[in-house]
Amino acid sequence: MVRTLIVDDTQETRTVLSQITTLAGGVVVGDVATGMEALVWLANHPVDLVITDFQMPGMPGDVLAAQIRAQWPDVRIAMISVLADADIDAKAKAAGVHWLLSKPVTVDQIERVIRGSTGHGSRLSGAAPR
């Protein structure tokens, strides 16, 4: 079971990504609209995979990813972006993102991400930061 947190500032996108993740075999344990909410969620719930948007108001996806990698290094991160240029690619690499996907994503792509996340993730409820 890959416990997945969806992070996107658009409700519609969160809904669609949740449906795709479920169809791809993941278990969506939560969906939040901002990076800050995601960090609060991670501090209180065990999560294996975070699927996050790149372009979000407040905290962009790469900044969120860097914070997740620093505090919960076992959590896998897939970042999705409408624009996928060299700049975003470099930011994703620097932040330690595991998968950078161009939007729209497919069920097959998310299936691969979920397979790659199996056996990783935070194990304890309330996953304490390292």
């Binding site: 996108t13 669609v16 449906q19 169809l23 409408v82 729209p104």
Partner: peptide
């Protein structure tokens, strides 16, 4: 464009992609 039509079109594309499986389940 990014916040409006592009979001709608990419979400619609994702919905279409999962539709064949969704019809089954």
């Amino acid at each position: 464009l990014h916040d409006g039509p592009v979001q709608v079109l990419s979400n619609t594309s994702m919905r279409l992609n999962m539709l064949s499986q969704l019809i089954q389940v």
